[in-house]
Design a protein around this nucleic acid. Structure first.
Lengths: 160, 160
DNA sequence: ATTACTGCAAAGCATTTGCAAATGC
DNA sequence: GCATTTGCAAATGCTTTGCAGTAAT
C-alpha cells in the first residue's frame, strides 16, 4: 500500500478516535491504552472481520490485548456506532467498520464465503417511505443478497 | 383459532411435505417420522422462531425428537428452501418458514425485540439489476431495517 | 484514593458430532 | 439385509464472566 494511502487511513482513524473518546467521556467510561489499540485495529480493517480472528491477532501482537477486552471494546464500538455486526449466519461474530465509509450493501457467496460490496442508493427512499407508513424510526438498514459469485460459477459445476 | 383456519394451514403443510419428500427422494435421503414431525412443526410456526426453542419444545413433546435431529432437519429444510435463517445478530439461530408465504422484509425493534414484516416489491428489480451487473447468481435476498417501533416510541423516552 | 478496566482462566451455552441402536427401503 | 437416521451424551469452540491486580481519574 502506498504511503499516502496509509496516511489518509490513519487520519480517519485519529479523527474517529477523538469522537470515540468523546463518547466514552460522556458515559463516564475511561480512555485506556487497550481501547485505543483495539479501536485503531478495527477501523484499520479494510473489510469485514471476525471477532475471534481479531482477538487472536491482538493477543499475539506487540501491544497485546486480551480476548475479553477485545470483545468488550467491540461492544462499545457498536454502541458508539463505529462498527456494525454483519451476517451472523454462522457461529462467529462478524463486524465491519462503518465510520468514514459510504453506505453499501452485501452479496455473500455461498460457495466461497466471499463478500462483495455494492452500492444501490435507489433502495433507500423506499425504505424511508415504509418506515413513515409504519411509524418506525429506523436507525439503519441492511440489504444482503445470497447466492453464487461469478468466480465460483466459473469453476464449480452445480447451481446455487 | 377457528377450525377452517387450522385446516388451511394444515393443507399447506401437507402440500409442502409432499414437496419435501420429493426433495429427499431426489437426494436418496430417507423419509422418516422424525423429519415429518419437525417439518410440520416448523411450517406451522406463524413467525420467526429460535432453533434452540424449537428443539426444546420438540424434545418434550408427545412425539419427541432429539435435539440433534431437530438441527439436522432444519439444515435440510434450509437447503430445500422451506425456511431461511434470519437475523443472526445474537448467539441463537433464528429461522422463519418461507414456504407458501409471500416475500417480505423485516423491521427489528431494538427496544422490544419485536419483528415487523413488510412488503416492498419495488426493491427487487434493483437487486436483480445489480446481480446482472456483477455476474452474481442470487438465490435470495434479505432487507432488514433496525430501529424503534411505534409502540416503543410511545412509552419509552430516549432515542434509538 | 477511588473506581473502572484488564488479563486470565474458567464457565456458558447453542450447536455439532461420534457411536450404538433403530428404522426406512 | 444394508445403509441411513436417530437419540444420546459428550465434545466443540466462540463468547462471556468472575476475580484479583492494575491503571485511569
Amino acid at each position: 500500500m502506498p504511503y499516502y494511502r496509509k496516511k489518509e487511513t490513519s487520519q480517519i482513524v485519529e479523527k474517529g478516535w477523538a469522537e470515540f473518546v468523546g463518547f466514552l467521556r460522556q458515559r463516564g467510561d475511561r480512555i485506556t491504552h487497550s481501547r485505543y489499540i483495539v479501536f485503531r485495529r478495527v477501523l484499520g480493517q479494510a473489510e469485514h472481520f471476525r471477532a475471534d480472528d481479531l482477538a487472536a491477532r491482538l493477543i499475539s501482537g506487540p501491544d497485546r490485548v486480551s480476548r475479553g477486552t477485545v470483545y468488550r471494546t467491540l461492544g462499545l464500538m457498536v454502541e458508539a456506532g463505529f462498527v456494525r455486526k454483519v451476517r451472523g449466519d454462522d457461529r462467529h461474530s462478524h463486524y465491519e467498520p462503518v465510520y468514514g465509509r459510504g453506505r453499501h450493501e452485501h452479496m455473500i457467496c455461498n460457495r466461497c464465503g466471499g463478500i462483495i460490496e455494492f452500492e444501490e442508493p435507489k433502495i433507500e427512499p423506499f425504505i424511508a417511505e415504509k418506515c413513515r407508513e409504519l411509524g418506525f424510526s429506523a436507525s439503519g438498514y441492511r440489504v444482503t443478497v445470497t447466492g453464487c459469485c461469478s468466480n465460483c460459477k466459473k469453476d464449480g459445476a452445480g447451481l446455487e
